[in-house]
């Protein structure tokens, strides 16, 4: 998994509360493998109309923000469906960080497993950052995961992230390798548990 340490990039504000994963990647693209290039379908129905024409007023379509690598989102970002392909679409666009007042749980878990940083800020800081970017779209934003700070122009403020997720992103760790080191404990648990909870095995018809 790709590490995340520090990023300075263009940031695009998408100030929509409860922007759900059905918007981030509509369900009709879920039959595609990641290798098909899901980034081009990111926010498809918000970026394009029914005839496939770009909606010029959508932030990510504005010239200054087309190449954004950071999104400044609204509250409860990426709620809804557990589709991890929503993270693939963001990451492959390529977005590397989403800054928002809050994130849906499943999405935040999916993001960290794919190297996408979810930086939680106060609603006031999100509003301020959005207003700053709308006034000066090309002002670069710097996200420093080690320091847990966001810098934009002369402003610098903190963001929060679960410390375990921070460590994983800083190191690019994935779960599987870690879990392998628990192999013996898993086996011991399984044996003890089967004796303790025999009813937990699928019974009857098989």
């Amino acid at each position: 998994m790709e590490k995340f340490t520090r990023l300075t990039a263009t940031a695009c504000p998408i100030n929509i509360a409860n922007l759900n994963t059905d918007q981030i990647l509509p369900a009709r693209f879920l039959n595609l493998p990641r290798s098909a290039g899901l980034g081009k379908f990111l926010l498809q129905d918000l970026r394009f109309d029914a005839e496939g024409r770009e909606r010029g007023d959508f932030p990510l379509n504005r010239p200054a923000w087309r190449a954004a690598e950071i999104i400044v989102g609204g509250r409860n970002f990426a709620c809804g469906s557990s589709r991890e392909a929503a993270v693939y679409a963001l990451f492959d666009y390529p977005i590397r960080c989403v800054i928002a007042p809050s994130f849906a749980d499943i999405f935040a878990g999916n993001a960290v497993r794919n190297g996408l940083l979810t930086a939680t800020v106060s609603q006031d800081d999100a509003t301020m950052l959005t207003a700053t970017l709308e006034a000066m779209p090309i002002l670069p934003v710097t996200v420093d995961l080690d320091q847990q700070t966001i810098g934009c122009g002369d402003r610098n403020f903190a963001f929060s992230i679960d410390p375990v997720r921070r460590t994983r992103l800083l190191n690019g760790w994935d779960d599987i390798a870690l879990t392998e080191s628990y192999r013996d404990r898993i086996a011991a648990f399984k044996t003890a548990d089967r004796a303790k909870r025999p009813w937990a095995m699928p019974g009857g018809a098989g």
Binding site: D105, N110, R113
Partner: peptide, 21 residues
């Protein structure tokens, strides 16, 4: 509900890492 990477983790290990909500 879990994402695809967690599905893969469960398939491979029958376990999951979680923090207590």
């Amino acid at each position: 509900g879990i994402g695809a990477s967690e599905v893969a983790h469960v398939l491979m290990t029958q376990t999951l890492w979680q923090r207590k909500p």
